[in-house]
Design a protein around this nucleic acid. Structure first.
Lengths: 157, 157
DNA sequence: GTGGGTGCAAAGTGTTTGCAAGTGT
DNA sequence: ACACTTGCAAACACTTTGCACCCAC
């Protein structure tokens, strides 16, 4: 499903820039092209690599300066997967409420949604006297396939 | 409820050290005393401050070297609240399954538990082919009291 | 006595920023 | 033209580490 709403996302980002009186530059173009042509989670450094394959002139500084714009526009979310660097998730344009399961065996990240959990989160927030604004649910799990077969179809198992 | 299981936690940590052939030193003593006499979340730097009030000789290096031991022992959990530094939560000894709601208005952190959510998380992991090992749920919310009264009984509202 | 522990300061690592030059509108 | 942007490299902030001395067992 890589970048199924790529065009829509890019347009939305353009509107975001306009509304904040910011400019579309060739570097930003390359960066958002890169971001919205994948559905993988990525780090700043990965994004820099990818973008540079398309345009050598993109600098680390510009990547780091563009990422906050992307998160502020809501098209990309900053994620913590327990590592020392931030991950960015470009799939919130398509599925604004999704959650993550990280396999501790193979580092695979599975995205999932659950209306039931969403509902419970809302109820809990209300009962504590708050209005829910955002949520982040991260499950860490181990791969049944690995345990059963001694290997799974992913990376490092 | 600050440190209700303080003694138990300290004993458990002692056993953890023994089992790994590590030693109890006066600095470690001070650090764990400090950790288990609060139920607040804290940063490394805060812990250093607190510990130094009790014993000037505790160094930043020792704090940073002790924290991984505390997390490895399971008595303290490393938390990400979206800041640039790690937070540590000493309440997992008492409530191993709790979750967090962070108020975006006043930065208050509320801990809560939910059997229903725990159960759903297990079901979802199973259905995806994994066995749940750990979970982290973080709700970001805004304070109803603030909205209604223009102020809430906490810090910065 | 020996192997782990400590404090100090230097080194790391991911990220941010000041500056002078460049560029979209 | 003006204000926003860029690349570069230096600066940052938090955390980790090498080393010589110290101390718990």
């Amino acid at each position: 499903m890589a970048g199924i709403n790529r065009v829509a996302a890019k347009e939305k980002f353009l509107r975001f820039l306009e509304q904040k009186n910011l400019r579309m530059t060739s570097q930003r173009q390359v960066i958002i092209d890169t971001v919205f042509s994948t559905d993988q989670h990525f780090t700043a450094e990965q994004l820099l690599d990818w973008a540079r394959k398309q345009d050598q002139s993109v600098s680390r500084a510009t990547v780091y300066r563009t990422l906050p714009l992307l998160t502020e526009s809501g098209l990309v979310h900053e994620m913590d997967f327990g590592k020392d660097y931030k991950y960015y998730d470009p799939n919130y344009a398509d599925s604004p409420n999704h959650n993550h399961l990280i396999c501790q065996d193979c580092d695979r990240i599975v995205e999932f949604e659950s209306d039931k959990i969403d509902k419970l989160q809302d109820e809990i927030s209300q009962s504590l006297g708050f209005s829910l604004k955002a949520q982040q649910l991260r499950l860490t799990a181990s791969c049944d396939e690995l345990k059963r077969l001694g290997a799974c179809k992913n990376k490092a198992c």
